Simulated assay, not measured.
Amino acid sequence: MNRQQLDELRRALQPFPEGAADSALFNDYLAFYGLDFPQAAEYQSGLISSGGFQLMTHYWQQPGAVATLLLVHGYYDHTGIYDKVIAYGLGRGCNVLMFDLPGHGLSSGEPAVIDDFADYGDAIADVLGAVALPELPLLAMGQSTGGAAITEFARRYEWPFDRVALLAPLVRPAGWRGVKVAHALLKPFVATLGRTFNQNSADLDFLAFVRDDPLQCHRVSLRWLGALKRWLKSLPLADLGVGPALVVQGRRDGTVDWRYNMGAIAKLYPNSEIVYLEEAGHQLANESTAIRASYETHLDRYFALQPL
């Protein structure tokens, strides 16, 4: 697919759960990103309102589901490149709910821009409020900025999750002091900077795909960095009162300041279990098969799930 086709598809999307299931273009989108999972007996999609945004939402259901798994993606990411994590949930007997954050994927909003991290927390709340979920255990998993979104949600909403896993969660990015200085110096003069595609996964096929992915943004927003600065300043490193989390962190992660972040997460989610992966980079949702298998065993145990 190309950007023009995806822009056309975005304009044709309907409110959840009507989506655009009868659209050949939408079916092409599902096939292009590998989102047409045969094990899902029912699939719903469409737009959910959240503040001034329209969030593209996907919900895969299967008979005899043992839980519902909410997935929250990272910065620059979208549902289309989380096919492996969606397959993990479905392969463990879960219904899977996922949406594109504001400014990402097929959701509305300026690409990769946010002015307040509260919008990320609100997005989770509004999606959970709009989808009729069955009476099953509710699990959540967030990658990078998705973890920050879950943390922001925890600050302001009643906690609905039975268990939560955080993959390489964002608190501070790598080189944060330099980033803050650069942001202060450049903000009066430029709105964005060019994005560098880092080798953040051992899956070389994924790295090649994401560079050509038509839903990727190729700029770094200084407004997003400003929102991150304000969020960190407002975030007390104290118990959120929602219980522990399972945290998975790669030691080859050069995207986030994981040494600082693990200490912060331990304060926000006391008694959390932290699993370090020696060979893993930042993009844990799209790591190599071997690395994903190594942490999926921890997810299975923590979530009390079994492969079908």
Results as ranks from 00 to 15, higher is better:
A87F: 04
D77S: 04
F53V: 07
A87S: 10
M56R: 07
T57V: 09
D77P: 05
G74H: 00
Y75C: 11
L55H: 09
H78S: 03
L55V: 09
A65D: 12
Q62C: 05
I86T: 11
Y75W: 14
F53H: 06
Y75A: 11
W60C: 04
L71K: 08
P63G: 08
K84W: 11
I81C: 04
Q62L: 15
V66E: 06
Q54W: 02
Q61N: 06
G89L: 12
W60I: 00
I81H: 00
Y76F: 14
Q62I: 12
Q54G: 00
Q62D: 09
V85Y: 09
G80V: 00
G89Y: 07
I86V: 12
H73C: 03
I81T: 01
M56P: 03
L71E: 15
H78R: 10
Q54I: 12
F53T: 00
S49C: 07
S50M: 02
Y75Q: 14
M56H: 14
D83P: 10
T79C: 10
Y82Q: 13
I81E: 08
D77W: 00
G80M: 08
A67D: 11
G74Q: 02
L69R: 08
G80R: 01
Y76R: 11
L71P: 01
Q54K: 14
G89W: 05
H58C: 14
T79P: 09
L70S: 11
I86K: 00
D83E: 13
H78N: 01
K84Y: 09
D83K: 13
H73T: 09
D77N: 08
L69G: 11
Q54A: 11
A67I: 10
G80Y: 01
V72E: 05
G80K: 05
Q61W: 09
D83V: 10
Y88D: 13
Y88Q: 05
G80P: 02
Y82V: 10
Q61K: 12
L71Q: 08
Y75T: 15
T57A: 13
G51Q: 09
V66I: 06
G89H: 03
S49I: 01
Q62N: 15
Q61F: 08
D83N: 14
G80W: 06
T57Q: 14
G89C: 11
T79W: 01
G52R: 02
Q61P: 13
L90K: 04
I48G: 02
L71F: 07
L47D: 02
Q54P: 01
Q54L: 12
Q61D: 06
Y88K: 09
G89A: 09
H73L: 07
S50P: 02
G46V: 08
W60D: 01
Y88G: 08
L90R: 05
Q62F: 15
K84Q: 13
V72Q: 08
G64R: 02
Y82H: 13
H73V: 00
I48Y: 03
L47A: 02
L47R: 06
T68A: 06
T57L: 15
G52E: 11
H78E: 04
S49P: 03
M56T: 04
V72D: 01
L47M: 06
G52D: 11
L69F: 10
I81R: 00
P63C: 07
L55K: 03
T79A: 13
G46I: 12
I48K: 00
L47Y: 04
P63R: 06
L47F: 00
D77M: 03
V66K: 13
G64C: 09
I81S: 06
I86D: 04
K84A: 10
